[in-house]
């Protein structure tokens, strides 16, 4: 007969080994597939931290289940198990660890959140207008409207997002930004692109049957290239209807 204490030690050792192996495997990996903005970098480190914390939690339950399934089978023994109703010590540790984890994760999340969404000054503003099922980008300083979003590299960009009909959602995976476009109520986000290139974006909120095909394209280029692109765009003489004040 294995003593109760011995069962605990074996399981704890298995848990420790599996947790360490797991943490080594996940530490430092890139989870967001393409990272091209300051925001996406913050989000990726949040992903990695949460995954590191998840490993020992996952392993604790899995080892507990697997060990029990292997070692505590009745195998025809019809007697009852020990009449244990609880363990004050173990319950206290469990609660203490849960609360500590929650408070720690909350603190880390709050810092990241403020870093991503906190009020910031911007260097470049674009009005984003959405409708079923297309995106329009208006550059107030240049007086230009385009189908593609062009933003400068390494500068703080302020996007003010509107909708003409139903709820849409502006999402560019590589930038780690997503924001609903709400009719009657402009929303806004800030982002700083860090890698030059062309990135796909899409509508993330179900907006009718055209939702599947509601895509957009973002081009990130140096300020000079952006200015020359803006100057080549035709300037619409009357303001497009529905654009906000």
């Amino acid at each position: 007969m294995t003593s109760p204490r011995r069962h605990l030690w074996i399981a704890a050792a298995a848990w420790a080994v599996l947790s360490i192996v797991g943490i080594v495997l996940v530490a430092g990996i890139q989870i967001i597939p393409v990272i091209a903005s300051r925001e996406a970098v913050i989000e990726n480190s949040a992903f990695v931290l949460l995954t590191i914390v998840s490993v020992p939690v996952l392993m604790f339950v899995v080892v507990g289940l697997a060990y029990s399934a292997l070692r505590f089978r009745a195998n025809g023994d019809e007697t009852d198990g020990p009449p244990v109703h609880g363990s004050r010590g173990f319950q206290s540790i469990w609660l203490g660890v849960s609360f500590a984890l929650v408070i720690g994760l909350f603190g880390y999340g709050a810092v990241g959140l403020i870093d991503i969404r906190g009020a910031q000054s911007s260097d470049f503003e674009v009005q984003v207008r959405s409708e079923q099922w297309a995106w329009h980008f208006e550059y107030p300083d240049a007086g230009v409207v385009s189908k593609e979003l062009h933003i400068p590299l390494g500068e703080r960009v302020h996007l003010v997002i509107n909708s003409d009909d139903v709820i849409h959602s502006f999402w560019v995976p590589a930038f780690g930004v997503k924001q609903d476009a709400v009719p009657g109520r402009p929303t806004q986000i800030y982002l700083t692109a860090t890698v030059e290139g062309t990135y796909p974006g899409l509508c993330a909120e179900l907006c009718g049957f055209g939702h599947t095909d509601m895509h957009l394209t973002v081009v990130v280029s140096g300020r000079a290239a952006l200015e020359s692109w803006l100057s080549q765009q035709p300037k619409p003489s009357p303001q497009p209807s529905g654009s906000p004040p």
């Binding site: 505590f72 089978r73 198990g81 609880g86 609660l95 999340g109």
Partner: peptide, 24 residues
Amino acid sequence: ELISVPTGIVFLSALGTIWMGKLH
């Protein structure tokens, strides 16, 4: 995130009951 504390207790109860039991 706080609600994961009481939800976690369900795991505590289930695992605590299974541990050292006579499992059928």
